[in-house]
Nucleic acid binder design. Structure first.
Length: 1237
RNA sequence: GCCUUGGUGGCGGAAUUGGUAGACGCGCUGGAUUCAAAAUCCAGUUCCUUCACCGGAGUGCGGGUUCGAUUCCCGCCCAAGGUACCA
């Protein structure tokens, strides 16, 4: 009986499948254990040996846990929606479903060969309608939820609507869009249905937004931040541009804090947690509002009573005159209205014929920013531009309401009540924009920051000098800072060039320069901006802000070091405390006030929070960072111009993709408002299309669908018995959402589906969810840290909030398996010789155009690289090529090359100078398929290589010893070589005219480099071949033996013979001379010791995920038992169980041969018994001054004194101390002896 | 820059409540077996010196603590991964 792994493995794989050996039950007496792998995307390339690494580890763990008496759930499935299948469909027209199905078959075949203990009865595929039905369903739940910050959980959106009806949104504390305004219940009730929907959308956990997205033109879709690497798409490396599009977004930002907090509760690798922590990017600080000073005023011209803006003081003056005139001659309607307004029945101050910007408005309440216009009167020069005028005023944050003359004259009460209503609703200056603005009592009383001019007068700051006043111009710049304690160190402000206020505040004088700067920075791509971090650029706007405490003028700059997408897109610049601000200030010669005691800031900023205290800072003097921060925030809150704030970097996740092969949204539109299709109609099946590209008019591929099951040609819902619109009045035809969901949708909840994979009424049954609860062990790659693993945690928390799952973290423990790297092989092509120093004898200027490609062996490559480097170092001065280096190792070879290929060394150019840059480009490493190597060596199989591609057919190869290994020679033609040598080597067997290409036994040696394993690098190793040639058990053992699971390591097939040998030895321990030889005798103490040592070590190793050392221990055990010629059943039977998680096939076979009827996976892991490891003696290492010199075997029960006696009387000890008296003798019983001389 | 992980023979790697550095495997060297090869078995294999014994050095570098440091502390260097004008 030989160990025939092919036969054995096939036999047991079949057995397991037929007996459903690994099917998990949803109830059991045993404790549960859920072991999960990240399911694969089934790509066309199939598996390489890197893929199964994690699966093998988890499989070992799962099998081990079964032996330990657990009810183990170990499922597998496919993340089968994705871009590659779609790209393939675009190229070939093949339906992605077909491609995917084929790929899955390949994957399954490959996986089955490795002997995994998956419960395939629970397989899920994200592209199956029975699965994505529930992805769509979860989407609907998200749509119907909002995040309540008080309850700290998601709640039904209906609750919110109910509250709005009763009291508006004044007291609502929920995650919402930044631009959400305050409204009352009256408002809510007067809003149209559509308006209500628009407001509700601001709270929903998934919502449509016109947002700037990462658009990839090459892929025709948007990409999420985590799908972009270094400014290009992760798949394919295509460029990305920013583009505004209407997209579904997921309000993951609502969960930022809980996602952060949850990390404390889960056993995940620290680096992964750190990645998520950084990605969420919480920073604590304060939000502070700076008022903008009017440019007119800041120029010292300020006109009395004009607390508002116009770019041009001349015009302002004219307009003022005009306004005066109009005030003096009101129309009848104006007069009536003014009577009411000025009576202050409204408790708010109104102004008549007031100048706002370049416009004169009829009436305005400045503190509420409400403009009231009365029609029927000619507004002079604005009349045709009414729309533009409205827009400009709205941009400034004003709300405009218009009345007809008739209305005012006919029913003034109604007009006034309308105005009252408006006033109730309107928040203060729209730009104020911080979260709880209405909750600030000062503000809501209309006092706080939005001063009237009168109040400004009072507050006129002496430091501003005559003619300066602080103006309430409606513009506030809100900044976020983590160092509010440094507020007295502010010497300028910087806005992102994209900041919405930039053009509004810029003075006429600076407008051209500011525009120029904006154009310049906007034109730069994200990538350029990143590459160019060092360059300082910026532009003064001419405008000033007012320091909230000192009332000093603070110049406002714009600069592209401030990012529009982070915080508020504006910073208060504290040059003494922030290096970027410091550099900026130095560069533009802005003052750098120092507010740190005893700190030198003459060369750089001091960003240390500790080791100093604040000075030159009024009420903060003498305080440290913590105290000052606390104090300043109190003051800011007191003044109503700032508050404590926690800022997160995490952005909401874009959820729409302009792709075909993804989950369709269960969404249609009525009057541009999205509507969810009722749950009972799910799944919304992905329709067939003829063309997988976007439509001609730029809609996503689903726009090509000619018919959906329930749709007409125009991609609209029809009202029929299958789908009926939600309410009676909506009968008819409506457009559908044409985007599909992103790849991470399906993978964000699949772990729950495995618990109850065939449930057709729920995404998973309560009972199953409560039984399995969470994944106990999740194994997968760390590349998913900020994608899948964050989104999945988000969805899980959401489902938890809705009471749909029992735990809010889906995976208790997670292990990142390292990557198995490939050993890429390279050939080195010489090209471009003509321009880099060589000239063709035949007059051709470049070898690149030669019909024969020229490759040199790796030794030459290394030499060439060395030469290039020397050349670079030695500068570009004239070079005598012959003296400076050796293109080829010796003169003869050089001549051979030159003569044979019609090349002439271009030694002496007219300038005597060689172009170095071209040199470096003249030799190019090219990946060569590792299957073209001879066996496991680095020698290239030239024939195979040259046959692989047409362009290499006539390639010429220079071997390691400089010989020409020309394939042309084998065709009997030979290039005009120097033929003497070839003639001599001419092989008789090749026949007339043929010569051996391999002259003198030279070889072409490829270069090797460790790289990520990938089809495109031709360095993949196929697990099928390994299984074929070594067996699945060998593959499993070897992958584990390579090194620690979590570490990246290169694959080297050569080493697999080690585990092959182990399996053979294991077999021979049982099967001797072709038959099973096993004895029922009692084992010896030594044999028991080996067994129990192994049991202990392996159990520990598996628990610690140290699979590599287990394999070592198996080897040791088998080696030792072989040495003892052990054939005792009492040893060999338990040993099989211990090894079986790693090598399931061979152990099943031997287990059966030992007479067992049931699968070894049903056995019980042997228990460790310490008694067998008890030792009676210890081989003491005896050290002198800490250096081990010899060992001494002594009984373990000796006392310290007895040990000392034994050691000191030992002959070697006497020899080492050579008569001297030892200073100290350290004796640790059972450990060591150390003698200090 | 910041965060994280790591750095040990020719190679993959082992050993950390501080106690014999290099387990196990690959590769290499020598031997047995064989007509020969493969396979198998045996012995050796950190480096330097030496025929050998002996001796010396040695876990990225420099210090420190200790009877004793791959392990602990301080300061650096290098590599990989993540992240970044994040205010």
């Amino acid at each position: 009986m030989k160990y025939n792994y092919n036969e054995i493995e096939a036999k047991w794989q079949k057995y397991w499948a037929e007996h459903q050996t690994f099917k998990a039950e949803n109830n059991s007496e045993k404790p549960k254990f859920y072991v999960l792998d990240m399911f694969p995307y089934p790509s066309g390339a199939g598996l390489h040996v890197g893929h199964p690494l994690g699966y093998i580890a988890s499989d070992i763990y799962a099998r081990y846990k079964r032996l330990k008496g657990f009810n183990v759930l170990h499922p597998q499935g496919y993340d089968s929606f994705g871009l590659p299948a779609e790209q393939y469909a675009i190229q070939t027209g093949q339906h992605p479903a077909i491609t995917t199905e084929e790929n899955i078959k390949t994957y399954r075949r490959q996986l089955d060969k490795i002997g995994f203990s998956f419960d395939w009865s629970r397989e899920v595929r994200t592209s199956n309608p029975d699965y994505y039905q529930w992805t769509q369903w979860i989407f609907i739940q998200l749509y119907n939820s909002y995040y309540c910050k008080d309850a700290n959980q998601a709640r039904p959106i209906a609750e919110l609507a109910a509250v709005f009806k009763i009291e508006g949104n004044i007291r609502i504390n929920a995650a919402c869009d930044d631009d959400t305004t305050i409204f009352s219940s009256d408002d809510w009730n007067t809003f149209s249905k559509k308006e209500q929907q628009i407001i509700l959308a601001k709270y929903r956990l998934t919502y449509l937004s016109e947002s700037e997205v990462n658009w990839c033109p090459a892929l025709g879709t948007v990409l999420a931040n985590d799908e972009i690497v270094n400014g290009v798409s992760e798949r394919g490396g295509h460029p990305i541009v920013r583009k505004k599009m209407k997209q579904w977004s997921m309000r993951i930002s609502a969960y930022a804090q809980r996602l952060l907090d949850g990390l404390q509760t889960i056993d995940w690798p620290q680096p992964l947690k750190d990645s998520q922590t950084n990605w969420i990017g919480r920073s604590e600080g304060a939000s502070v509002v700076f008022k903008v000073l009017s440019p007119t005023l800041s120029e010292g011209k300020g006109v009395k009573d004009v607390g508002y803006l116009t770019g041009n003081p001349e015009i302002a003056h004219l307009l003022l005159e005009k306004a005066k005139e109009m005030r003096a001659n009101p129309t009848q309607a104006e007069a009536i209205l003014w009577e009411q307004l000025k009576s202050k029945n409204l408790e708010l101050k109104f102004r008549q014929q007031h100048l706002i910007g370049d416009f004169i408005v009829d009436f305005v309440c400045l503190s509420k920013k409400l403009i009231i216009e009365v029609d029927g009167k000619i507004h002079d020069f604005q009349v045709e531009k009414d729309e533009e005028r409205t827009k400009i005023l709205e941009d400034k944050g004003y709300k405009i309401i218009r009345f007809k003359n008739k209305e005012v004259i006919g029913n003034i009460d109604k007009v006034i009540s309308k105005i009252e209503n408006e006033l109730k609703v309107l928040p203060f200056g729209k730009d104020l924009g911080w979260e709880n603005k209405v909750l600030s009592p000062t503000l809501s009383e209309g006092k706080g920051v939005n001063f009237d001019n009168d109040e400004f007068e009072k507050r006129k700051s002496p430091s501003l000098g005559e003619g300066f006043r602080m103006g309430d111009l409606g513009w506030d710049i809100e900044v976020f800072t983590t160092r509010p304690d440094t507020i007295f160190g502010v010497s300028f402000m910087t806005l992102a060039p994209e900041h919405e206020l930039v053009l509004k505040i810029t003075t006429d004088e600076y407008l051209p320069k500011v525009r120029e700067y904006i154009t310049k920075t906007a034109g730069r791509s994200e990538r350029e901006r990143m590459a160019d971090v060092k360059t300082i650029s910026g532009q003064f706007t001419g405008a000033y802000a007012i320091h909230p405490f000192t009332d000093e003028k603070i110049p406002i700059w714009i600069g592209d070091y401030v990012l529009a997408s982070y915080g508020t897109g504006a910073v208060m610049s504290v040059p003494c405390g922030d290096q970027r601000d410091y550099d900026f200030a130095k560069y533009f010669e802005i003052p750098i006030p120092n507010i740190f005691a005893d700190v030198d800031i003459s060369t750089e900023a001091f960003s240390d929070k500790e080791n100093t205290f604040i000075t030159n800072s009024d009420f903060l003097n003498g305080l440290n960072y913590k105290q000052a921060t606390q104090k300043v925030i109190e003051k800011l809150e007191e003044k109503g111009i700032g508050k404590r704030k926690i800022n997160y970097r995490l952005r909401d996740a874009v959820f729409s993709r302009q792709r075909y092969w993804g989950e369709p949204f269960p969404v249609y539109y009525v009057d541009d408002i999205p509507q969810m299709i009722e749950e009972k109609y799910l799944p919304i099946i992905l329709p067939e299309v003829e063309n997988y590209l976007p439509t001609e008019d730029g809609r996503p591929p689903l726009g090509n669908a000619t018919h959906w099951a329930w749709c007409t040609q125009t991609n609209t819902i029809v009202s029929n018995d299958k789908i009926s619109p939600p309410s009676g009045d909506l009968g008819g035809v409506f457009p559908l959402e044409l985007n599909t969901m992103p790849g991470w949708a399906g993978s964000s909840w699949y772990f729950n589906r495995y618990m109850d994979a065939h449930n057709s009424t729920e995404f998973a049954g309560k009972e199953a969810l409560n039984y399995w609860k969470e994944v106990d062990l999740y194994i997968g790659g760390s590349e998913h840290a900020t994608g899948h693993l964050l989104y999945a945690r988000f969805w899980q928390k959401f489902l938890f909030d809705l009471g749909l799952v029992p735990v809010d973290e889906f995976a208790r423990k997670l292990i990142n398996q390292g990557m198995i790297l490939g050993m890429s092989a390279f050939v080195y092509r010489i090209s471009n010789l003509g321009s880099s120093g060589f000239r063709d004898k035949l007059g051709r200027d470049s070898v690149g155009n030669f019909s024969n490609k020229l490759f040199v062996s790796s030794l030459y490559y290394k030499e060439l690289i060395k030469i290039f480097e020397n050349l670079r170092i030695e500068s570009t001065s004239s070079l005598d090529f012959r003296r400076n280096g050796v293109f080829f190792r010796d003169q003869k070879i050089e001549n051979d090359i030159l003569n044979n290929f019609g090349l002439e060394l271009y030694r002496y150019t007219t300038s005597n100078t060689l172009s170095l840059s071209l040199y470096a480009n003249s030799i190019i490493p090219i990946h060569v398929d590792i299957s073209f190597l001879k066996g496991l060596t680095d020698e290239l199989n030239i024939e195979a290589f040259k046959n692989s591609r047409e362009e290499y057919k006539n390639a010429i190869f220079i071997g390691e010893n400089g010989k020409i290994l020309s394939p042309t020679l084998s065709e009997g033609k030979g290039v005009s070589t120097n033929n003497d040598e070839i003639e001599q080597d001419k092989s008789p067997s090749l026949g007339e005219g043929f010569r051996m290409g391999d002259i003198g036994g030279d070889k072409y040696i490829v270069g090797r480099e460790v790289e990520k394993m990938s089809k495109s690098k031709y360095n993949t190793v196929n697990p099928d071949e390994i299984c074929e040639q070594h067996g699945a058990d060998s593959l499993r053992l070897f992958e584990m033996f390579l090194g620690p699971l979590e570490q990246s390591k290169p694959w080297n097939t050569a080493g697999i013979t080690g585990v092959d040998g182990f399996l053979k030895k294991l077999w021979k321990l049982y099967i001797l001379n072709d038959s099973l030889e096993i004895s029922d005798e009692n084992p010896s103490a030594a044999e028991f010791k080996i067994l129990h040592k192994t049991i202990k070590k392996v159990a520990e190793d598996i628990e610690n995920f140290s699979f590599n050392t287990s394999v070592s221990n198996f080897m040791i055990a088998v080696n030792e038992l072989t040495a003892l010629k052990c054939n005792k059943r009492a040893i060999l039977e338990p040993l099989l169980i211990v090894i079986s998680p790693y090598a399931p096939h061979i152990t099943e076979e031997l287990w059966t041969l030992l007479g067992n009827n049931e699968s070894i996976s049903k056995a019980v892991f042997p228990s460790f018994e310490a008694q067998y490891l008890v030792e009676s003696t210890k081989n003491y290492p005896v050290s002198f001054n800490g250096k081990m010199k010899f060992t001494l075997e002594l009984p373990l029960d000796l006392t310290k004194e007895e040990i000392q006696d034994a050691v000191m009387n030992h002959q070697k000890t006497i020899q080492f101390i050579a008569g001297k008296t030892p200073k100290t003798i350290i004796i640790v019983p059972g450990k060591i002896v150390n003698i200090v001389v």
